[in-house]
Design a protein around this nucleic acid. Structure first.
Length: 422
RNA sequence: GGCGAGAUCGCAUAGUGGUCUAGUGCAGCCGCCUUGAAAGCGGCCAGGUGUAACAGCCUCCAGGGUUCGAAUCCCUGUCUCGCCGCCA
């Protein structure tokens, strides 16, 4: 949610932001109207309630003979109050619905356009030349099967399509990646957290995942709980309804949890292997900070991601995502795309969003500053999405015989092993 | 899953239909006093909305209901605590 004051103070800024996203500008006009309706209704209710209170005091003090008349009057007024309250409730609900539907206004310098309009802002590392080495790279699934690391068939047997088992060396690789990611995050001052992956509707909605992304979310109707698609949800809701101590900002959390995604609307896309699955585990960074620090924190998170990917020897590109592809809560987003030799292209491995005050306002997270209580910004970023990172490691470090060189930084977490062997 | 007890402005508590515009204690902040500190004394000390600033209005877990009027009475839900059952 945005600051409601913006509707009155700077509607043009909101219109521009809607335009940049390719979203309806009419929504802003509807909001302005709904805001006026709401204020009128509140003013009416308040006036009537004040009258009622006054009359109530008179009733309490009345003598028996004046009491009857006053009571009749009060009864009539009570009707009016009730009506006004109902009207106010409706006006408020209409306004809130519109507010909740409004995406976070993007920063003005975010590139225009949609999915294909992301701007490559940096490339790190050089993809291996497999032709020069004299062999054609295998894809991650072929390697995974040779290594006894990935079992899709049994994943499908037990849970259906887009499920997998990691076995033997594959399981060990994920555990090593997890440990390595945690050790790096600790160096950077993040507080490690293991968080719930089932959350209430308020947490899901507060982080903006029940908007346009709702179809991608698993819901358990019997308990009215949602399976999170990222631990961001739990970490954002962690401080909901709290007033944080501004001296403790920024709060940097590192969350570890399984992530669940229905992948509705991606039928037939990336069906091979573990690139696009219904469940994976992830180490995620999450930051609460002062609004004016959010851009700097965002770049810091991006740097952490770049450092992590580089250290594993994966060639990658950094992309700034275009406005139309940002999702409800982000004002700016950077993705890192790692090189996939078998596809000869870069694919997404991390994503970091600056949600400014959008989530914190929905979740009622604030901070106590020197000059009073004010908003905080939230940011999130992938440190290590296990399945994607496993793909990167297997494919980029493979040898002609199907063995895979273990990146040096991971070796301490794999009992010193230098190579995974079929 | 069953039974019982609770939820009040940071913490602790008072408040059983109008005087609650919610009292008190502790903690915290400011000042006086003091060489400094403690004690003592005085003041401030919940959030939201709103305003130029006041005022006003809303919020006693949440949502309904009764009533002219609800922190207070009734219903439902959520959460917490205790006991029993089950369980990693």
């Amino acid at each position: 949610m945005i600051d409601p004051k913006l509707i009155r103070t700077d509607p043009d800024r909101l219109r521009r932001a809607q335009e940049a996203r390719g979203e309806s500008v009419e929504l802003i006009d509807q909001l302005i109207q709904a805001d006026e309706n709401r204020r009128d209704a509140i003013a009416r209710s308040e006036a009537l309630r004040a009258q009622q209170k006054d009359l109530g005091r008179q009733v309490a003090k009345a003598t028996p003979d004046t009491r009857t008349a006053l009571l009749a009057q009060a009864k009539q007024l009570a009707e009016q109050v009730k009506e006004a309250e109902v009207a106010t409730g409706l006006a408020e609900a209409q306004f809130t619905d519109l507010m909740m539907a409004l995406p976070n206004p993007v920063f003005e310098d975010v590139p225009r356009g949609g999915e294909d309009d992301a701007v490559v802002i940096e490339a790190v590392g050089v993809p291996r030349d497999f032709a020069a080495e004299g062999f054609a790279p295998r894809d991650h699934l072929e390697l995974g099967e040779m290594l006894g690391a990935i079992d899709m068939d049994r994943g499908a047997k037990v849970s259906g399509s887009r499920f997998y088992f990691l076995t033997g060396q594959g399981a060990l690789l994920e555990l090593a990646l997890t440990q390595y990611a945690v050790s790096r995050a600790l160096e950077w001052g993040f507080t490690p957290m293991i968080v719930p992956s089932l959350v209430k509707p308020s947490a899901m909605d507060g982080t903006g995942f029940l908007g346009q992304a709702a179809e991608d979310v698993y819901h358990l109707p019997d308990d009215d709980l949602y399976l999170v698609g990222t631990s961001e949800v739990a970490m954002a809701a962690y401080h909901s309804d709290e007033i944080l101590d501004a001296d403790k900002l920024p709060l940097r959390y590192m969350g570890y949890s399984p992530c669940f995604r229905r992948e509705a609307g991606s039928y037939g896309k990336d069906t091979r292997g573990i690139f696009r699955v219904h469940w994976f585990d992830k180490v995620e960074m999450f930051v609460y900070c002062r609004p004016e620090d959010s851009e700097a924190e965002h770049l810091a998170i991006l740097d952490f991601e770049k450092s992590f990917i580089s250290s594993l020897g994966i060639p990658f590109q950094v992309l700034e995502v275009a406005a139309g592809d940002l999702g409800l809560s982000a004002a700016r987003k950077f993705d890192c795309y790692g090189w996939v030799p078998s596809q000869e292209r870069y694919r997404e491995i991390t994503s970091t969003s600056n949600c400014t005050g959008f989530q914190s306002r929905r979740l009622n997270v604030r901070a106590r500053y020197a000059d009073g209580i004010g908003p905080v910004a939230t940011l999130n970023g992938t440190l290590c999405a296990m399945t994607r990172m496993i793909i990167m490691i297997l494919e980029n470090n493979q040898n002609p015989d199907g063995s895979v060189r273990v990146p040096e930084v991971l070796r301490p977490f794999l009992g010193g092993r230098e190579v995974l062997t079929p």
